[in-house]
Design a protein around this nucleic acid. Structure first.
Lengths: 389, 389
DNA sequence: ACCGGTTGCGAAAGCGTTCCCGGTACTTCT
DNA sequence: AGAAGTACCGGGAACGCTTTCGCAACCGGT
């Protein structure tokens, strides 16, 4: 017979429904509902997930309170030197690893900064990330990398992931399809600082790290002109990105400044997908009135064009001089070497994190965003040096 | 005069030390210690960190309990359809983002898998990571990427970071300097599954994803032999890595099988640092009795050698035929195109995550590790096709 | 001897979730 | 009509950590 778990009464027990698959009983005397305790599923087999040592374990071992352990582990004041040593010893003995989840919850900070990049197949972004880590890691922060794969939707998803992860700051570089930065507004609302780098938009009030794209483009195109190019094409990027607009403008101004005319048919737009680069190249080189010079918005596009030119038997640089942008390692490997505008990639990452930290430590409620503009350097290789000139 | 905060007594008050910089008082009547409440530092300026909506906010808005909200957000049973809709609406209205830290703490799982790679400058690892994300993300997991920068110490640090982050699983590829995997043992102890990929060691009992390195090397070297090479060199990797030992063995066996003799002076060891590749190449090509063929353990080493050869005026493939390993995109860009053994990079990532998930969902206490061996494909380009042959 | 000050530690309240369990109001059998 | 079952919901402990604040013990000067 069923006994009440409280009064051990037997007679006043009535069935009171099934709950979560188990019979429930009601004791009329105690006015108490209960289910029979599940017969102690004896297996410690359910203990597959081993217990990780916590500060409570350390505290128990030393017969002190967890507050003291916490203080000891953080070099807090208000702690006896011997106690601290003892705690540290036990921590090492137990191989204690602080639980960052709990830490983050308690402190409302995750010690993590999120980085959103459009891709990391080409070396540009990896180098930036490495630069960022070089500053972030020593400061005790680690880095959560999200790549948007040049997809706007993925970028949005990534912002949500970073939001849920409660990152303390964001470094972001946009996709070529990102029409606006509304999906980043939530970070502002939450007081999480953002620094945009490289691929930024103009319509946002935030800190930015960019290079002088206009100047770089201007230099690159001028170089082509000085090397005898008469018809200089430009593979431009999506015009939602300031970086692409600036490079385009630099291209245009360089031409005009040197008394050359603008020819819209020589400007072709690349959506930054790898296949698109090949299409642009095809299109450009198939044109009846082929260009004899090309300034591409980035190295991969320049290199893709060189490949296509090669297939078509177009000689580089004599028939087509090429200048890229970024100086990714590959640009030194292709044949002929690609003339390009070197970007200080690691420097970009470092600068961005420094700016982020500055903003994170800012106590004044109205932080004034800052834009750092780094310089590019023209690296001349063979792809732009016409022989007959 | 000072009043007791409890009884408002004035006379029985005595000073009782300074604590944390503030004067403390003692009321003899109440037997009570107190400090004066800090004059309400009126600034809401300290509220710079805005409040993020939580389930409690949703609950308050709807006048229900947070338990109900939690159930609603997770499509739990035991919830009225209308209630759920209401919760979802409010959640959307408030732009609620679940706090992954709190979730992780409560559930003892972080929905994160950690990936440790030795570097991500070359494209191999990025592609693997993309493959991994393609499986992990749809399953609700995100990926924490750590790069060890070919440093053993950094790799150890990375394991600690991932341990602290309480990742639910690990994908790891070792540095060329990692002597053993003791630093990964803590994951085993904690019951956190690991899958090693690509750069693995033999002395560990865990799931692995590798390619058939021996076979790939054998194929590559055989291809060189069939193309008329008589003195085939090998840039080998650190012998702590099984992958490097296998490729070396494949090289040796291919030579022996084809009646060629082994020449230790033609084997040179690369520590996987970028500069080291150039040294190896220099050394190899400066030798009095220069090789006429090269099988390099990876594409970057092969390409570095091609660069050095070019500088020295050594013609490829006629004077030196080259075969790499991996088929990174760059290998198609260099001149001549690099013959190489294609690895299914994204596939490696996907397979590894699948294996990891399998192990994570395994309930039996004794999980049997599994090793998946993927196939390589010889991609023939011009770097290995001697003309006079 | 007493008072004011110092040092070191413990108790407990959060942080935002999940989840177990108990409770209520209602429905459906007999 | 009353017993048995169903559908939902709320309370509250737990996760591992930080942090505030109270308190005891001790120290040194008058």
């Amino acid at each position: 017979m069923i006994k009440c778990v409280k009064c051990s009464e037997v007679d006043a027990i009535a069935k009171a429904g099934i709950i979560r698959g188990k019979q429930r009983y009601y004791c009329g005397r105690c006015d108490y509902y209960f289910t029979l305790p599940a017969a102690e599923v004896s297996l410690a087999a359910a203990t597959s997930k081993k217990h990780q040592p916590t500060i409570v374990d350390i505290a128990r071992e030393l017969q002190i309170s967890k507050s003291t352990v916490s203080r000891a582990l953080h070099g807090h004041s208000d702690i006896n030197e011997e106690t601290r040593k003892a705690v540290l010893d036990v921590a090492k003995k137990l191989d204690y690893q602080p639980n960052l989840l709990a830490y983050g919850l308690a402190k409302s900070k995750s010690l993590t900064i999120g980085i959103i990049v459009p891709e990391f197949i080409n070396s540009f972004f990896p180098y930036v990330i490495i630069g960022a880590q070089e500053i972030a890691n020593p400061a005790g922060y680690h880095v959560l990398i999200c790549q948007s794969n040049e997809s706007y939707q993925t970028e949005i998803d990534n912002t949500n992931v970073l939001m849920s992860s409660r990152v303390d700051g964001i470094l972001a570089s946009l996709t070529g399809k990102t029409p606006n930065v509304d999906h980043f507004k939530k970070f502002e609302r939450a007081g999480i600082p953002i620094v945009y780098f490289n691929r930024v938009t103009t319509d946002v009030c935030a800190s930015k790290v960019i290079v002088d794209d206009y100047d770089g483009a201007y230099q690159g195109v001028t170089h082509l002109i000085q090397n005898g190019c008469k018809r200089i094409a430009h593979i431009a990027g999506p015009q939602n990105l300031q970086i692409c607009r600036d490079r385009l403008q630099g291209y245009k101004d360089a031409l005009l400044r040197h008394g050359m005319e603008l020819n819209e048919s020589l400007i072709i737009y690349h959506d930054l997908n790898p296949e698109s680069a090949l299409h642009c190249a095809q299109h450009l080189l198939d044109a009846p009135d082929r260009p004899d010079g090309l300034f591409a918005l980035n190295d991969p596009a320049a290199i893709a064009t060189m490949q296509v030119a090669k297939e078509k038997g177009i000689r580089i640089p004599d028939e087509l001089a090429v200048v890229g942008f970024s100086n990714e390692p590959t640009s030194a490997l292709v044949e002929p070497g690609l003339t390009t505008l070197a970007q200080p990639m690691a420097e970009i990452g470092k600068t961005a994190v420094n700016l982020l930290f500055k903003q994170m430590n800012d106590t004044t409620d109205c932080f004034i965003p800052e834009t750092k503009v780094l310089k590019t350097t023209l690296i001349v290789r063979k792809s732009s040096l016409k022989r007959q000139f």
